[in-house]
Design a protein around this nucleic acid. Structure first.
Lengths: 176, 176
DNA sequence: CTTATGTAGTTAGGTTCCTAATTATTTTTT
DNA sequence: AAAAAATAATTAGGAACCTAACTACATAAG
């Protein structure tokens, strides 16, 4: 139990099966250590990827959220309502307001009041915003491709399938 | 009501292959859309899992980081240096200081100055901290297991392998 | 038509984690 | 032995995203 000084010396602590099993054994629970390991590794990977993405987008003066907002705008004809953006990006409307504030300040999008509904203010991709996306596309997509370069086409399909099912399972953490 | 007539009506926007392909086509790039899709889906999953984990741990009055710190303490005999915790958790020492502050305030850990090195202050798991881990273990691990319940043992192995290789590839986003 | 209720966007304040600078102590160099 | 460099923990301030409260406008109910 009290194992100080056990030859462990890793830069980044990747959760191991032994470690998961030990945690479970400690309380005599009937749980599959491998299942716990999958959960731990996915959390680790998600955090790591999130951080790496911020560094990646920072090269272009953007954050992950602001890039995704621009991409969604481009994907929808260059004009979208904030509430729709929130839904597409899976974030709250309050967050979208903040993203737009900075993108507008930088001239990549602009706001325009709606004629139909006085409450709405649609967001518009400016020419500067469009060219920003154009400029970063080659490097951006090349890096994304490189990221999954260790998987062949067949493996990518399998990964998408498995990831999709695990993603469904995430609700098990929040249910009840 | 808010449906702008293009048949799309999803609560959460899951990136699709068509969508990835369209983005790539727009600039005539030679990139595999499936590869981009894997990257997009993994980012989505990581963000979603991170958020769900916070909700999960909040039930026990903890955050993801503070739980991981407690678990690491327990895993290492109940006494670890802040700098070691930072390394194990993959966060900075500044972050660890903040995590300890709150855990100490709540009585789950305590700080003790080192006799050997005047700069060090080791972190100790209190009895209250240990019992907190004991109490939450059954539900915590059960939920983790449920999360990956849609995968059988064989599939979990495959997933771990593929995820590991994609995780290696994450450096492609930050290199150079 | 006037009041109650709902919706769009924003603001205010909180959480998590970060980087950079600061303080105290130890180790190395001269 | 004194000065310089390295190390441990902390503090200060920033970025991303959240929830809840607020403002302005729109629509439904009496």
């Amino acid at each position: 139990m009290t194992n100080h000084s056990n030859g462990r010396k890793q830069e980044e602590a990747i959760p191991s099966l032994v470690q998961s099993q030990r945690q479970i054994d400690q309380y005599g629970l009937d749980v599959d250590a491998q299942a716990v390991l999958v959960a731990a590794r996915l959390m680790e990977a998600g955090a790591k990827l999130g951080h790496a993405a911020e560094i990646h987008f920072a090269r272009f003066g953007l954050s992950t959220g602001r890039y995704r907002l621009l991409a969604d705008l481009e994907d929808n004809g260059g004009e979208v309502l904030p509430s729709q953006l929130a839904e597409h990006l899976g974030v709250t409307r309050a967050t979208v307001t903040g993203l737009i504030d900075i993108l507008e300040r930088d001239g990549l999008v602009s706001r325009r009041a709606s004629a139909k509904d006085g409450r709405q203010k649609s967001v518009i991709l400016t020419e500067l915003g469009a060219s920003k996306l154009r400029e970063m596309a080659p490097e951006h997509f090349a890096r994304l491709e490189a990221m999954v370069g260790l998987l062949n086409t067949e493996e990518r399909s399998v990964f998408l399938d498995l990831l999709g099912r695990v993603t469904q399972g995430i609700s098990a953490l929040t249910d009840e």
